[in-house]
Simulated assay, not measured.
Amino acid sequence: MWLTRLPLNLRSREVMRDLGDVQSMHSRLMSLFPQSDGEGARRSFQVLYRVEDAGDQPLQVLLQCALEPSVVGLPSDYLREAGGGYGCTSLLPLFERMTAGAPFIFRLRANTTKKIHSFDSDGTRRKNGTRVPIKDLELEAWALRKLEQAGLEVIDSQGGRQLKAVGEPNRFGFKPGGTKLTLASTLFEGLVAVRDADLVRLTLEQGVGAAKAYGFGLLSLAPAGDRGEP
C-alpha cells in the first residue's frame, strides 16, 4: 500500500473545480491509474483519499492505494510547487508496527449516514433503503462501533476518552448523468489501541463507511508515544 501527498495549487482552475465537486475530484484521482471501469477500478486499486485542510498546513490530498499513482497526466499547474510537499511512501512500516495493544492517533473523515427502510409508491419495500444523516447525539456511538469493527478500541488518556467528532459542511457534486450528490461529513480524531492487527490492516485497505469514492472512509493512523501522545 502507498500513501501519496498531493499539495494543491489553489490558483489552478482545475483544482478549484475539483474541490467544489466530489465527482470531479474522484474522476481526477482515478485518472492517475491504469484505465478500468469506474467503481470497479477504485476497488481494484484500493483507492481512498481525503482532502486534508488541517490548521495552517497547505491544502493537500492524501491518496492511499495499492498501486503507486502516476501524476504525469495532471494539469501542469495542478500541484503547488513552492515549498514542495509532494511525496509517495510505502505503508509497510506502519503495518509492521500494528501489534496488539499498540496505541495510535487516528483521523477519519466519514460519510456519517445510516440506512432506513424506504418504499415505492405502491408500498413495495425498496431493496437498498435510503441513506439519511446520523444525528449529532449518535455520532460518538457510530464511531465507536465502526472502530470496534475495524479491530480498534478508543482508549483513555489524561483522564478522559480521546475521541473528537467535528461536524463539517456537506460535500456536493454531480454524477455524470446529472444527479446531484449531497454527502454528510464528520471528521473524527482520537486515540486508539490495536485489538486485532489483521482486522486493522484490512480496514485500512478497504476503508470505513459509505461514499469512499468521494473522499470519505480513509482511516489514517500514526504511532502514539508511551503515554498516548503523538
Rank of each mutant, 00 (worst) to 15 (best):
F174S: 11
S90E: 02
Q158L: 13
R131T: 14
L6E: 01
P133K: 04
D122V: 03
L3V: 11
V132R: 01
T112P: 09
L219S: 05
L108C: 05
S27R: 09
N111R: 08
P75N: 06
P7Y: 02
R28Y: 03
A211T: 02
M16G: 00
E153N: 11
A82S: 14
L218N: 09
R43H: 12
G101Q: 09
F216L: 03
A66L: 13
A100T: 14
Q60F: 10
K146S: 11
Q64I: 00
L74F: 10
G228D: 09
E52F: 13
L163S: 05
S36E: 11
E81M: 11
F216D: 04
P34S: 05
K115P: 02
S27Q: 11
K135S: 15
I155G: 06
K127D: 04
A210L: 11
G225I: 05
P103G: 00
T112Y: 06
I134C: 12
L199S: 13
P34D: 02
G55Y: 10
L144S: 04
V166H: 01
G20D: 03
G123R: 02
G85E: 01
L147M: 10
A165T: 00
V71I: 13
P169Q: 00
P230Y: 03
A143T: 06
T130Y: 07
L62C: 00
A224I: 00
R43T: 10
I116H: 04
Q149M: 12
L94I: 02
P69H: 05
L137P: 00
R107Q: 10
I116M: 12
L62R: 08
A102H: 08
P230D: 03
Q64E: 12
K164V: 15
L191W: 02
A141C: 05
A150Q: 06
T179Q: 15
N9M: 00
P133Q: 07
T89I: 07
G209T: 04
V71A: 08
T182I: 11
R50S: 14
E138T: 01
Q57D: 15
L191Q: 03
L147N: 06
E39A: 15
G160W: 09
D18S: 12
L163W: 05
F106D: 01
S76N: 12
E148A: 13
A210N: 13
Y49F: 14
R126I: 08
S44N: 14
E148Q: 14
P58Y: 08
N170W: 15
F45S: 06
R80I: 04
V72H: 10
G228E: 08
K114G: 08
K127V: 08
K212V: 06
S220M: 13
S12T: 01
R43P: 07
P69L: 06
L204W: 04
